[in-house]
Amino acid sequence: MTSLPPPPAKKLGLVIDLDTCVGCQACVTACKGWNDQGHGAPLSDQDARGADPSGTFLNRVHSYEVTPPDAAARIVHFPRSCLHCDNAPCVTVCPTGASYKRAADGIVLVNEDACIGCGLCAWACPYGARELDAAAGVMKKCTLCVDRIDNATLAEQDRVPACVRTCPTGARHFGDLADPESAVSRLVAERGGYELMPEQGTRPTNRYLPPRPRDRIDDEAPLAPLLDIRPAGLAGWLDRVLGRL
């Protein structure tokens, strides 16, 4: 049954650095490209050249605008994909067992051969991480690139999700969040990584690193002039400057 497995010893997931993400969308198309030809049905597009193009993507990058009361407004780019929740409601609602959480590493997957496309799991997910593919009629979601991360045919360093491998700024990190010593866990600890919508009780594995504080230039001290240039004139200034050489 698709009750959830006991908390896995290994929790694979992503850590996404909002301080670094420039919103380039590389992870979006890299994900589409990999998953269009990889695990499960291709990610179809409808009306692809028409008035309302619409397709299945497993990862999308939003932009938000933050306007603090006392500082300049700013934009934060925000990638959104499955968070591989510990307490994944998408799994428990599934009537067919198609949706499941892997006991070994916590990855949440859809067995497309068993999926009836009822859409309930997408309803149950607070994060919009699931999209029903209109051509295949089955639920698609981020697989954490389950067909890459242990893929023996790939070079060791390539055994990471497609979106992580492609991210030009290195804003996406992949690893075991159950292991406090892992690089991702340390990042989370150092940078105050957080969960999305904790009130939903889903206990996501993925973490987001908050943007660092911005616009602190005003704290910088100005430079002290060498001398009062008006009385000293250029010659006085030259003496002082060149005297230092």
Binding site: C24, Q25, A26, V28, T29, A30, K32, G33, W34, Q157, D158, A162, R165, T166, C167, P168
Partner: peptide, 19 residues
């Protein structure tokens, strides 16, 4: 996908390159 050994991109690709 990006060529890891390449001097320019060291394996990464942008959204255009990946599509």
């Amino acid at each position: 996908e990006g060529n890891r050994d390449h001097p320019v991109n060291k394996g990464v690709l942008c959204a255009k390159g990946a599509s």
